[in-house]
Design a protein around this nucleic acid. Structure first.
Lengths: 122, 122
DNA sequence: CTTGACCTTGTCACCGGCGTCAACCTTTAC
DNA sequence: GTAAAGGTTGACGCCGGTGACAAGGTCAAG
């Protein structure tokens, strides 16, 4: 299939697909006229990427998952490198949550100090 | 005082101070040679900005606080516009925390599905 | 006179993930 | 023939908050 169909089937823009290719996440054969050609496995790969991005992974984070799928694994998350990314991401999220909780109380404290009584009326 | 002293006293780079001026957050008189001239109230304003940025406010978020100080209030956070920003920021943070918690469980769920047994061994 | 510490404006670069042109080629349908 | 609907590459823009340059002007001390 060509890029437009891949885009439709995965819900990703053609621009994004070309960007993923430029970043080395997906590959394409070229037909005689220069058009990119994809197959079913590419649909799977792009879907994996989007699933990961949907939960806050970056493209670089997704790379080990793509490699894992390409190496024949049925799931992109079952290779050691992917597992490491999962663990790192969970740790990142936990840290972000801790930071936000701390920030929340700092903001609330500043607010209370700057405007006594305001918070209780919130 | 000139920009270098203001920078030293507030712990902000001269680059940042010029940027704040460009964004309209601080003002300066110019002496005969073109140098920026500041007074004590500017120290207070820049400090306020940094305090807010330290808890995750953007420069735009800080604007009402600066206006509030300029209008004579002893605290930048006591004007209605500032209070609105405080409330909005607290709501933002709460939403971010909720999003992160949701994301955390999504990631954990994906992880569990992609690699059964991995999570428990984390 | 020179050095060095200050100041000025203006510009590019960065980070990610594209959107959105521009300018052009290919293929199909009418 | 031509228009529409694909495709191609390349490049700029965005968001925020600077860092780091360039290429100068100013001023006090030695």
């Amino acid at each position: 299939m060509r890029i437009g169909e891949l885009a439709r089937r995965t819900g990703v823009s053609t621009r994004a697909l070309r960007y993923y290719e430029q970043r080395g996440l997906i590959r394409s054969r070229r037909s005689a006229n220069g058009y990119r050609e994809y197959d079913e496995s590419d649909v799977r790969i792009v879907s994996e990427i989007r699933e990961l991005m949907a939960v806050g992974f970056t493209l670089e984070d997704a790379r080990p998952f793509v490699d894992c799928l390409r190496s024949g694994h049925p799931s992109g998350g079952s290779c050691p490198e992917s597992v490491a990314v999962y663990r790192r991401k969970l740790a990142d999220i936990d840290r972000q949550i801790r930071d936000l909780l701390a920030r929340r109380s700092e903001v609330a404290a500043q607010f209370a100090e700057a405007c006594p009584g305001c918070l209780s009326r919130a």
